[in-house]
Amino acid sequence: MFDEIMIPEDRFYPQVGYDACVRLKIRLPWYRSFPLSCVKDIALTIDGNAMPRQSLSLGLYGQAHTLDQLADLHDVQWFILDAANLLVDCDRRLGQGQHRVEMKMTLRIPYSDNMAFEFTEVAHCTKTLALTAEDGV
C-alpha cells in the first residue's frame, strides 16, 4: 500500500559531519500507524549496489535505530503522517548528482492471533534521487 510514495522526495540529504553518510525521507507504507517493532526489514540498493543491512538505520523522533533494534520497539508508534529518515552509511562517498534507488520495506501487519500465521506486506519503490552539496534540513 502506497509503495510508490513511500519515498516522498526526490533527493538525498548529506549527513552533516559524516562524509560517506546520506539520508533519505521514508514513509510507512500503510494506512495507519504501527509500532517500529512491525518494521521487519528494509533493503536498499543505490545504483544497483545492495547496501549491507548493518549500514542502514532508521531515524525517528530524534533517535536512530539499527534495523536489528526495531524488533523490540513495540512502544514507539510511527505515526502515519510522519516521515522517518533512512540513514545510509556508504562505504565510500556518494557522488553528487542523480542516483537510482530501490527500496523494499517488509512490514508485519500485526492482525493475526495465531503465531503460526504472520501477515507480512512487502512494499517496493524505485526512484531517482539527487544528491546536492547543500546541507539538508
Binding site: 512491525c38 513495540h74 508485519r108 500485526p110 492482525y111 493475526s112 503465531m115 504472520e118 501477515f119
Partner: peptide
Amino acid sequence: AYADYQRFTGRL
C-alpha cells in the same frame, strides 16, 4: 479499534 496481537516480536 485494533487488537494488534502481533505488535510484539516473537510473541502474541
